[in-house]
Design a protein around this nucleic acid. Structure first.
Lengths: 235, 235
DNA sequence: ATATACACTTCTGTATACAGAAATGAATAC
DNA sequence: GTATTCATTTCTGTATACAGAAGTGTATAT
């Protein structure tokens, strides 16, 4: 958005090794390619990433602050756990933010912004079958973020993005059973937004998120088996 | 809470130099003892803290992830800015979370927990005059966190704590004009909680937070002058 | 007087080194 | 067979070293 503004062409922001490491390890943590609670060996990981421990540890510290990794002084860095309670709490925070976000969106968004959401929205394009789950979840996240952006509150958007990273694995697991439901629920939210019916939009959003919240316990259980099945594709 | 549980006496969690540095620099950033946008000299700062650059940079990376510092690759670390828009957005997110939090508290909190909040609440003890502003803000934050804890949602509490760190400086500035208002508004919230009147509690909380939101612009302006006056007490 | 080029200084980004803590495992005691 | 001790190995926590980028200031040209 601001990046393409010709008035502020700052030097193209040199990428450091820390940034690269950060992204790679983040992906590993988000996708639980590291097992829950697994200890990270800094020397091995640094070697595998072709770097030294110094930038690695800086990246790991960022990830600890984002709660994608755990850290114990004297013992090192660990993959975050997979805990139904934590996921449940994150869904609850997410609901609080998104229900209010869609309210604000009803009040603040321009007609054209809402039109863009309505006509561009993924639920028109989703091929429900034969589409990689990752793509579907990507569309899902994008839809919710787009609504958050209508509030013009950058902090809100950032917080939701962070929550999304932490529950993405869970979304991967339950998306395939819920594609159709998701699509129709998204549509209901957009309809309410177009009508600027704040209460209805809020209610639809609450419903949309709470439905998933109910299933967390079982999805997390499925998560463990998925994680430990993936040994098969290990290195 | 869990720390004193005899069943889980883990080794007393050795403190590292990173932890110490983290806390010291965090305090500097929170209190704007670093000027907004000021560049941090790693060598100087490390020397002043009696450490080397390695743990310093790890701590700084954590603080960047928490948005208490900025980072530009190739240029280094900077104190966060002081920006009315950002503060405004944080107050908005805070309102979203706390209004819903007090609703959940009405539903979930035990009678005894609410009693404890009501009888122990700071507004009974606040000495309005002649009390350091820092203490008053500490009571204020503690009050709000206590309510959040009634939800039993640890993530919610954590997110609010992080927001509090980022707006603490602003609270310091406007607290002295608002001590009495704060006290009575807190009381109204507690009364609604005791009555388990969810809608009323939510409305009181919303009002409580939005009142401050309206003043942010002017408080931020005051903030700049405060920051640049403090040169007088420099080292 | 302002702008440009260039040498010089300072600082960041990363690798490496090393001390001490933690984990591992063998050997011994019970 | 289980528990305990101690030697050995491995790994973390931090300091230091160094290359190259960024910043600074001076001298020269216009």
């Amino acid at each position: 958005m601001t990046a393409s503004d010709p008035a502020e062409i700052a030097p193209p922001a040199p990428r450091t090794r820390v940034d690269d490491i950060y992204e790679v390890v983040k992906e590993m943590a988000v996708a639980y390619r590291l097992k829950p609670g697994e200890r990270l060996n800094e020397m091995t990981l640094a070697r595998d990433l072709g770097a030294s421990r110094t930038p690695l540890r800086e990246a790991l510290n960022r990830l600890v602050a984002e709660r994608l990794l755990d850290f114990v002084a004297g013992r090192g860095f660990f993959c975050r756990g997979l805990d139904a309670r934590e996921v449940f709490e994150l869904y609850e925070v997410r609901r609080m933010l998104e229900v209010e976000a869609v309210r604000l969106a009803c009040r603040r968004a321009s007609d054209s912004a809402i039109d863009a959401l309505a006509s561009n929205s993924d639920f028109y394009h989703w091929k429900v079958f034969g589409q990689p789950i990752q793509e579907l979840v990507g569309h899902d996240e994008a839809f919710h973020i787009q609504i958050a952006k209508l509030t013009e509150n950058g902090e809100l958007v950032r917080q939701l993005r962070r929550i999304n990273e932490r529950i993405r694995f869970i979304r991967w697991l339950d998306m395939d059973r819920r594609v159709e439901g998701t699509r129709s629920e998204h549509r209901a939210i957009v309809d309410a937004l177009v009508a600027r019916d704040e209460d209805l939009a809020a209610e639809k959003m609450r419903h949309h998120i709470e439905r998933r919240q109910d299933q967390i316990e079982s999805v997390v259980r499925e998560g463990f088996s998925t994680i430990y099945m993936n040994d098969l594709e290990g290195p």
